[in-house]
Design a protein around this nucleic acid. Structure first.
Length: 225
DNA sequence: CCCTGATTCGC
DNA sequence: GCGAATCAGG
């Protein structure tokens, strides 16, 4: 197997979504867990909670089962004392600029740096100008098929090949599974999803207190089978 | 033992 | 660039 665009994209999404390397490897198929990790590193997207980081600093304690390195680096002993490093940084300022965040998304206040709200979409999401579309977090698919309101049967599923600019690309189910398909409804003009799924994809940022408890698990989280 | 990610290094 | 082998921690 080779790393095609699609596979890399899938790897990236799942990796960032918190899936384990094993899950990703299984999902992609044809690659090992190590291959996934190696690729992830090469893509530059490591760094995420690993069970064996922090103390696992093993610069070069190699018992040399394989190749041994022999490159004594000429360490320059010339240490004059060039780094006083004043660093007066840490200005506590406990509650400096807290509130202001809660209001700027849901309020039509003439805030200068918040994205311009052009209109409010039918789903309740905020429609923004094309230029200031801040990347919404998740095209995260639902964990289970929900009775969105689709056709009664699974007969006419929207497959990957059926996708175009005018139908909703919201994924239903998990890729690779027999009944995986896409929503297929007519899109909300200007968006990749239908009105209903726009409401899910572009959640209006609620004030801190009134935040919904269940943050959407990206990519369905752990497999459910 | 199982799992996890990180790293190395021959290919 | 790729990934098996290896390591190290939970």
């Amino acid at each position: 197997m080779s790393w095609t665009e699609e596979r890399i994209e899938k790897l990236t999404k799942m990796w960032e979504g918190g899936s384990t390397a094993s899950q990703i490897a299984e999902e992609l198929g044809g690659v090992s867990r190590n291959a996934v990790i190696g690729k992830a590193h090469r893509l530059g997207l490591k760094a995420r909670p690993s069970p064996v980081k922090e103390k696992a600093a093993k610069p070069k304690p190699k018992p040399a089962p394989k190749k041994a390195e022999a490159a004594p680096k000429p360490e320059a002993p010339a240490r004059a004392a060039p780094a006083p490093a004043p660093a007066p940084a840490a200005r506590p300022t406990p509650a400096a600029a807290p509130q202001q965040r809660a209001a700027d998304t849901a309020s039509p206040a003439p805030s200068s740096n918040s994205p311009r709200i052009v209109s409010v979409g039918p789903g309740g999401f905020l429609r923004q100008g094309p230029g200031d579309q801040q990347s919404p977090i998740p095209p995260a698919p639902p964990r289970r098929l929900v009775p969105a309101k689709p056709s009664p049967e699974i007969a006419d599923k929207t497959s990957l090949l059926d996708l175009n600019d005018r139908i909703c690309r919201w994924p239903m189910g998990h890729p690779g599974e027999p009944d995986f398909h896409f929503c297929g409804d007519k899109v909300n003009p200007g968006f990749p999803y239908c009105v209903e799924h726009c409401g899910r994809a572009y959640q209006a940022q609620l004030p801190r207190g009134a935040r919904r408890p269940p943050p959407p698990l990206p990519f369905g989280g752990p497999r459910v089978r």
